[in-house]
Design a binder for these strands. Sequence first.
DNA 1: CTTTAGACGAAGTATTA
DNA 2: TAATAATTCGTCTAAAG
Length: 296
Amino acid sequence: MVKDEDVGEFICNECGLVILEDMLDLRPEWRAFTLEESRAKRRTGPPTDYSRYDKGLSTTMWITRDASGQPIPSKARQQMWRLRRWQIRSTMHGKSRNLMKAMDVIQRLSEKLHISSSVQETAAMLYRKALDKDLVRGRSIASIAAAALYAACRLTEIPRSLEEMAKVSLREKKEIASGYRILVRRLKIKMPIHDPLNHLTKIAEKAEISGEVQGLAVKILREAKQKHMTLGKDPRGVAAAVLYVACQLKNKDVTQKRIADAANITEVTIRNRKKELMKRLSILRKRRRQLKKDRF
DNA sequence: CTTTAGACGAAGTATTA
DNA sequence: TAATAATTCGTCTAAAG
């Protein structure tokens, strides 16, 4: 990870992805001289960050003297007036109002889908960028906010599906999907390729598959990855198929349908992935012969 | 009757020129 | 931006248990 101080961005040196614009000053904005004071001033709730709709700018500026008590030169004061005006305007209407609403949506959806605050911040950052580029005009705030959150999940490889997003946001999947595509295209986001491993436990849990079988599934998946069988395939399909064959090896009675439902894919996809796995993975070779024998 | 396997076209996605 | 290739999905048919 490269920290580029000049432009204030973190850049991943593998994929060139810009992680975060505007570096944050993480120091507290207050000082405390006693323990009591410290306790009183300590805030609850989130620190100043991208989830705050105005980056903390709503603090009122009203200063005529500098820190040492000297009057501030008029030129500088004029500038401060301009800043203050801009600040007032930004809190009252226009984009900030928009942002406020979007942050609210992001927060609500995140709660429902158990999405961590760091991912929320990524989503907020994406939304802010979208707003700067005028991508929200003509589209609903809620759908773009949901799209930003979905994009943030994919960026951080948190497995949350479009379907889940659509369900909690009460919007059409199509709408969020198109918003997502616009974000990716216009913000030039480079999406990491999902590792099926990230989906494996989630699917297994939903389908109520034991940890023992999961362990075997992970092993199978490892070999599949080595042989580059996972690239370009739906990671959920791969994870589901691997789980399915693991169940068979352990003689667990689990139907394709059960796993397919848990993974939100179809049985067809599981079958296709399974066929490939059986053909090419050595782990499955022995067992395949045995299964064949058992039939006679 | 349920599960699994396979085939086909439709639909949406990614890559390339 | 448009064409091309690869992938998934829905549905149907059929075999196996």
